[in-house]
């Protein structure tokens, strides 16, 4: 009986597994397997070269820049986006007259395609006089800023656009969580004489932990894998100032034709993301318990 049931459970898994194994895992693994070879688009023959690709990775400055940028991007995105979204959600959970319109406005950027967002913001942040952002700054009497052309600033400009795009999304998840919390809890706190700040710190925030976990884990993974917004806004430039791991990976694979080498980068990167995610989950769990 239980064996029959166990078999049925596995049967339910099979269709998803078929798709996943054939169209996801197989292409990934067959690429990763090539990380020990000199697979190149310039050559028809492939040779086994052991760990050479992996050794080479640590001497590649651009790869190191990409790793640094991806981490900076992911960490800042995760912190800023959630630090803004939580208070926003708490505020919009209150009985405000315009709350529906406000929610809609904050959420709207999330539905735009990254491609369009990239091009739109390239115009907005243009360093020419008619770039709307700089025009606005100069109206306010502030000098113009070289948003995407200054190598020290460009990555943060990109992050700014992404905070703009995704904060509303995180906010909606927090809102959803808040709506599941019984209002009586807040009333009880109010009667006990707790002020707004105390209520937020002692009651709201702990109850938001499940959605904080989901939001931070997903934006961390997504941040480390960032590609399309950088591709459409800066192409990794100026120089290599905004290169992310995935932009470097594609460049090594296709522009330089070094597929084996790029595969090695892909393998290491996947392991890295996995470790980060597991650490993060463990950390959040500890917080949840306490």
């Amino acid at each position: 009986m239980t064996r029959k049931r166990e078999f049925a459970f596995l049967l339910l898994i099979v269709p998803a597994l078929l798709f996943y194994f054939i169209f996801y895992l197989y292409p990934v693994i067959s690429t990763f397997a090539h990380s020990f070879t000199d697979w190149s688009l310039l050559q028809r023959s492939i040779h086994f070269i052991g760990l050479d690709n992996y050794r080479q990775l640590f001497n590649d400055d651009v790869v190191l820049t990409g790793i640094k940028n991806s981490i900076v991007y992911a960490v800042i995105m995760t912190i800023v986006q959630n630090a803004l979204a939580v208070p926003l959600a708490v505020a919009l959970d209150k009985n405000l007259r315009s709350k529906n319109v406000l929610r809609m406005v904050f959420f709207a950027p999330a539905v735009l395609s990254p491609l369009v967002v990239g091009f739109l913001w390239s115009y907005i942040m243009s360093s020419l006089d008619y770039g709307p952002l700089n025009q606005m700054l100069s109206h306010l009497g502030l000098g113009s800023v070289n948003w995407l052309g200054e190598p020290k600033l460009a990555l943060y400009s990109v992050i700014l656009t992404q905070v703009w795009q995704w904060t509303g999304w995180a906010m909606v998840i927090y809102l959803a969580n808040l709506q599941g919390i019984s209002k009586e809890l807040f009333e009880a706190a109010h009667i006990d004489g707790a002020n707004g700040w105390k209520t937020f710190w002692n009651i709201t925030l702990p109850l938001l932990v499940p959605s904080i976990t989901i939001n931070t884990v997903l934006s961390m993974i997504g941040g480390l894998k960032v590609f399309d917004i950088i591709f459409s806004m800066t192409s990794g430039g100026p120089g290599h100032a905004t290169e992310s791991i995935v932009t470097v990976l594609l460049q090594r694979a296709f522009t330089d034709s070094q597929l084996g080498y790029a595969s090695a980068l892909g393998v290491l990167f996947s392991l890295f993301v996995m470790v980060v995610t597991l650490l993060q989950l463990r950390l959040m769990k500890r917080w949840e318990v306490s």
Binding site: M125, S126, L128, G149, P238
Partner: peptide, 8 residues
């Protein structure tokens, strides 16, 4: 100029 690095 460096400004031009931000121009398409």
């Amino acid at each position: 100029t460096k400004d031009m690095l931000g121009v398409d």
